[in-house]
Design a protein around this nucleic acid. Sequence first.
DNA 1: ACCTCATAGGTAGCATCACAAAGTATTGCG
DNA 2: CGCAATACTTTGTGATGCTACCTATGAGGT
Lengths: 115, 115
Amino acid sequence: MLPMRPELLKGHLDTLLLAVLEPGPQHGYAVIETLRNGSDGALDLPTGTVYPALHRLERAGLIAGDWQTVGGRRRRAYRLTPAGQAALGEQRAVWEQFSTAVTAVLTRRAWPATA
Amino acid sequence: MLPMRPELLKGHLDTLLLAVLEPGPQHGYAVIETLRNGSDGALDLPTGTVYPALHRLERAGLIAGDWQTVGGRRRRAYRLTPAGQAALGEQRAVWEQFSTAVTAVLTRRAWPATA
DNA sequence: ACCTCATAGGTAGCATCACAAAGTATTGCG
DNA sequence: CGCAATACTTTGTGATGCTACCTATGAGGT
């Protein structure tokens, strides 16, 4: 699996994180694994990307975190807030539109006369 | 049509431009129109985005530009170089992989046990 | 006891890049 | 003449993902 160019994710990371948390709370480290597994290894994000993004989403009120201690290790389990659930819905629609548009441009073979 | 958040395009703009130029040369202003038409209005890019990107691609040797004068107006018609054609092929594959991964994450309803 | 790995979290600084905003010129229309 | 459309350019800024580094615990191997 090629190492994905970093900037490709720009603007889509938040959407992915919200989607991962939708079925139920997860802590940061698990989120990373879930993304890797759920994307067949294509989305293998470094901690320095994911943790700050989770903090950002929390500050924005889209997710909320609760500290836990499991087996002597401190974890932070994040869950979607109602605002986060709403934002996820909107962002799914945005992705749909964006990916449709890009795919259309990339697969078109001939262009109608510009006139 | 929602105004698309700017960052969404990050890293994908070059691919789009190469794809637009694939069927034949176009000048910058026409590229913008072609993108807008080809994406049903979703990709409506400002000149301050497209022109610098074209310069970048030219410096990278992926496209080449020729000055023309049409009706008293100076234009720069860009065409794909062989390197640009090759890059387009690669980047189409990258987009395929990326969009597949993101869509997979966004549409999955339940996640396999993380264990 | 020691080492290493996996787990779990964190921050500082950097680089990239699309965009906003402003500018230059020409043609053509009212 | 004034204004829109065509066509290109440049400066500066903001957002954000990544690299690199750091702390800490538990488990397994030697």
